[in-house]
Simulated assay, not measured.
Amino acid sequence: MTDGILPAEPIHVPEEVLADLRARLRAVRWPDELPDTGGVWGPGVDRMKRLCARWADGYDWGATEARVNQWPQYRTVIDGQDIHFFWLRSTEPNPIPLLLTHGWPGSVMEFLEVAAPLVAPGEHGAAGRPTFDLVIPSLPGYGWSAPPRARGWTLSRVARAWAALMARLGYDRFGAQGGDLGAMVSARLALHAPERMLGLHLTMAVVPHATGEITAQEQADLDDVARFVKYGTTYQATHCLSSQTVGYALNDSPAGLAAWILDKFDRWTDSPQDAFAAVPLDRVLDNLTLYWVTGTIASSMRLYAESRLADDLGPTRGRVEVPTGVALYPREIYRFPRSWIEAAFNLVHYRRMARGGHFAAMEEPDLFVADVRDFFGRLLRPA
């Protein structure tokens, strides 16, 4: 085994933890609600009752646990922080090392449907397409990566840790892919170690205001972004200012945790107010259960607070020269004009996707896989 890398124990959630979860879900004290609000203030009680009933008495965490345990998993300590990651190595020729970074309120569960096609395209009807070695870490304080025990874990610090992780695994050069906070980490990684980066693929490119011609469609995108910033970012303020306060409630009530996260799935998927039409209910429950059984909702939100305090949340400081590909999904929360992205990144691949939203790998796994393959395949094709 590579120095500093240790095999992780298979994931196993004790039955008493799951029994406690089910008991809490069966004893929710439901709030009142006004009629005909249409989810504008958050998930309605009927939707939440449906979710909690399924979570308590129909959902099979054991099946998901078994599925995840098929992925080789490891632990390492970088800069004093325990990091858990999956490392899926292809058996096909010339795999491209690719680091996949999730965001919030997602997790490594975002990649359940896309990992196998990327690692083994020949087994998924795509013989001859690019194949990848995947490294899929949990952000510090998320999932099976332990909560940081000291201050200062910002997006840039995570990026530096990811560079160290890839070096520890023996990858001199590699690609990176990310959305949400994972996109911000990946962009900072490209600034930190550009000489090691084969390419950068993003599903959410956050950039400063720039000049340049924009199309009518791009102006409509900017209008949506303006509405999101005005009406849809209260969660960011809460995470940055009161993550510990709200953490008590969300870590104690699975219904509260579910409502906080389902609200984002409802608003940010390509199926407004009905996330389950875009992401199957059980896949949403996979993600929720990971947060619950690891008790990491409060520590996950602290990444916002730490990064905001360090002025390290949002666009990168400096242009990214690593060849960059952007897949722009129609319901992504931040959709900036191509000319603005070109001012911030060395953009060599740009595609407006036909459908999908913020949780691209969960909503549209086939489109996600195809675009990642196209970007890296064309980027690395011999001249």
Rank of each mutant, 00 (worst) to 15 (best):
A115K: 04
R89P: 07
G103T: 14
T211C: 05
E364P: 11
I261N: 06
R22T: 09
S138N: 00
L134G: 02
H84P: 02
A19F: 05
R196G: 07
E321C: 04
P35M: 10
S107H: 07
A278P: 08
R50N: 12
L202I: 05
R29F: 03
D286Y: 04
Y304D: 00
D282E: 02
R317M: 00
Y142K: 00
S145L: 05
P330W: 10
F228L: 02
V158D: 04
I11H: 00
L189N: 00
L139S: 01
V326M: 06
D32L: 14
A8P: 11
T294G: 06
F336M: 15
L6A: 15
A116F: 07
Y329C: 09
E218G: 04
A278C: 03
A354L: 14
L118T: 00
A167Q: 07
A216E: 13
I333R: 06
E15Y: 08
T37M: 04
D270A: 13
G44H: 11
L18R: 07
M184Q: 11
S242G: 11
L313A: 01
V284F: 05
H209Q: 11
M204A: 09
A305I: 05
V207Y: 02
T2F: 15
Y171R: 09
L118M: 04
F375G: 09
L34F: 14
R188H: 03
H349S: 15
P31H: 05
T296V: 12
E364L: 12
D20T: 14
E65T: 10
T234Y: 10
L99W: 11
P130I: 10
A277S: 06
R26G: 06
A360D: 07
R267C: 05
N94K: 14
R351N: 02
D263T: 13
A63F: 13
V229D: 08
L281I: 10
Y171Q: 01
V114E: 00
A167K: 10
L139A: 06
H349L: 02
R160F: 00
D180S: 01
A167T: 12
A220W: 01
T289G: 01
Y291P: 12
V229K: 08
S253A: 12
R67W: 12
A237Q: 10
W30Q: 01
F376M: 04
G39N: 07
E342P: 14
Y171V: 13
L112Y: 14
R47F: 14
V326D: 02
D221R: 05
F228T: 13
D312F: 05
H12P: 03
R188P: 09
A190W: 03
A19N: 00
D3W: 11
P105C: 06
G179D: 08
E332T: 13
